[in-house]
Design a protein around this nucleic acid. Structure first.
Length: 388
DNA sequence: CCGAGCGAAATGGCCACACGCGTTA
DNA sequence: AATAACGCGTGTGGCCATTTCGCTC
C-alpha cells in the first residue's frame, strides 16, 4: 500500500529536493531553519554544534515527499503529512481504522553514532517508525528484547506495575507503569508479519542487519515447556524480515509512548493492521458478545474450537478471567516458526532433496553413512557389530 | 520398572497455485 | 467512463523421506 505511493512519488520526480545541496531528495524538515534537508545535509548541519543539534525536525511525508509529516500511521508504518493522511485513510473503511499518532519532532544527531546519554534515547527514538537510519545502537535493541522478555513473565502486568516495575525499566528511562499491558499488546503486534514496508531505508536496514547478526537475540521464551526446543535462528528470508519489522515497530512504540506522555492523554489504542482484523484487541474484548466472525487465515482464533455463545451479562470476575485468558493466549501467540526438536531440524537439513522435497537416500549414501558410523565406533573404542 | 513395537508428529526447501494490483485494449 | 484481459509480484500451502517422540503392551 504505502510502498507503492512512496515509490511512485520518488520515481515520478516529484520529491522535494534538499534546500541545501539541491541534489538529493529531502528526508527531514527543520522547523528552526524552515528548510527541507536530505540525510547528508541534515547530518552535516545539525551535527555542527549543540545549538544546531537541538533543532527540531520532522520526517518528510513518505507519500508525497513534499511536506512535513504530521502523523505516523502505525498500520502502514509510514509518516504522512496532513493531506496524504486524509487521502489515504479516507480511501476505505479498513484504512480508516489505521491508528495514527502525531509525529513528534526529532532533535539531536540522527545519523551519527548512538547517543551516549541513556536518557536521550527517548528523544532519539521519538523519530517515529521510519527510524531506518540506524541511529539506534545494540544496547537499545537488547534492552527492548529484555523488556519484552520480562513483560512475557507478567501474568497481570497492570497489577504488577507497581511492585515489579524494576523488571521493566532496566534503567533506560523506559517507564511502563500501568502501560505495561499496552506494551504487551504492542509486543504482540510486533510479531505480526503483515506490515510489509519495503522502503529503501528498510532494505538498507535489512542489509545492515545481515552483517550485524548480533542484533538478533535468540528467543529465550518458553515455547511450551519442551526440553528439546531450540531458539529460532533469524538468518535470512521471511523470518529475518519479521524480526526487522518487529524492530521497527518497536521503535514506533517508543515514539507513541513518548507521545502518550507528551500529550498527557490516557487513551492509547493498539493499531489494527489488515492482518489483525481477526484478532480481537483488548479494547474491544469486553464488547464481544455474540458475533465472532471467522478470522482469516494466519490469525489465531481467540476462542478456538466450536463457537461459544458468550453470555450477554458477564460478571466482573468472569470478564477479568476472560481478559486474563485472552492475554495469556496473546502472550503465547507466536507468528514465527518455532523449532520444537533440534534433532529433527538437523536431520532435515542434512537430508537429500529433489526440488525441495525430501528424497530417498540411495544405497550408496546409506552405505557411506554406515561406514562412517562404523569408523566412528572404532575410533571411540566400541566393539564393531556386523549389521549384515 | 524396563524394553520392544508401532503410529503419529515433525522437519526444510521448492514449486504450483491463488490473489491483488496495475496497465492496456 | 466502464469493463475485461493480461502481466507481474507476492504470499501460502502441499509435497516428499526419514527420524524421533510418545504411547501401549
Amino acid at each position: 500500500m504505502m510502498e507503492e505511493e512512496s515509490s511512485d512519488a520518488g520515481a515520478s520526480g516529484w520529491a522535494r529536493v534538499c534546500d541545501t545541496c539541491r541534489s538529493a531528495a529531502c528526508t527531514v524538515y527543520c522547523r528552526a531553519d524552515s528548510a527541507y534537508l536530505c540525510t547528508g545535509c541534515d547530518a552535516r548541519i545539525h551535527a555542527a554544534n549543540r545549538v544546531a543539534s537541538r533543532h527540531e525536525r520532522v520526517w518528510v511525508c513518505e507519500a508525497c515527499e513534499r511536506a512535513p509529516a504530521a502523523f505516523l500511521c502505525k498500520a502502514d508504518a509510514a509518516s504522512l503529512c496532513t493531506a496524504c493522511d486524509a487521502d489515504i485513510h479516507s480511501a476505505n473503511p479498513l484504512a480508516r481504522r489505521h491508528h495514527r499518532v502525531p509525529i513528534l519532532p526529532i532533535s539531536g544527531c540522527l545519523y551519527g553514532p548512538p547517543a551516549t546519554n541513556p536518557s536521550g534515547s527517548l528523544t532519539a527514538t521519538a523519530a517515529g517508525g521510519d527510524t531506518a537510519d540506524g541511529f539506534l545502537g545494540d544496547e537499545t535493541i537488547d534492552e527492548e528484547d529484555e523488556d519484552e522478555a520480562a513483560s512475557w513473565l507478567l501474568l497481570n502486568p497492570v497489577k504488577n506495575s507497581n511492585g515489579n516495575n524494576n523488571n521493566n525499566n532496566h534503567g533506560n528511562g523506559f517507564l511502563f507503569g500501568g502501560d505495561a499491558d499496552e506494551y504487551l499488546d504492542f509486543a504482540e503486534y510486533n510479531s505480526c508479519g503483515d506490515n510489509q514496508f519495503a522502503d529503501p531505508y528498510n532494505q538498507q536496514q535489512q542489509q545492515k542487519q545481515q552483517h550485524q547478526q548480533h542484533y538478533v537475540v535468540p528467543q529465550q521464551k518458553n515455547y511450551g515447556g519442551g526440553d528439546s526446543i531450540v531458539p529460532v535462528q533469524y538468518g535470512e528470508g521471511k523470518t529475518h524480515q519479521l524480526q526487522q519489522q518487529g524492530y521497527q515497530l518497536g521503535l514506533e512504540y517508543e515514539s507513541s509512548k513518548a507521545a502518550h506522555s507528551y500529550n498527557g492523554s490516557t487513551s492509547y489504542s493498539v493499531s489494527v493492521s489488515s492482518m489483525d482484523v481477526g484478532v480481537v484487541p483488548d479494547s474491544t474484548m469486553s464488547d464481544i458478545s455474540i458475533s465472532h466472525p471467522r478470522p482469516p487465515k494466519g490469525t489465531i482464533d481467540l476462542f478456538s474450537g466450536p463457537p461459544i455463545q458468550m453470555p450477554s451479562q458477564l460478571t466482573p470476575m468472569d470478564r477479568e478471567a476472560r481478559v486474563l485468558r485472552y492475554r495469556e493466549k496473546k502472550k503465547t501467540r507466536k507468528f514465527e516458526k518455532t523449532i520444537r526438536y533440534a534433532s529433527r531440524k538437523a536431520y532435515a537439513e542434512t537430508r537429500p532433496r529433489i526440488k525441495g522435497r525430501f528424497a530417498k537416500r540411495t544405497d550408496v549414501e546409506v552405505e557411506v553413512e554406515q561406514m562412517f558410523s562404523t569408523a566412528l565406533m572404532a575410533e571411540t573404542g566400541y566393539g564393531i557389530v556386523p549389521s549384515f
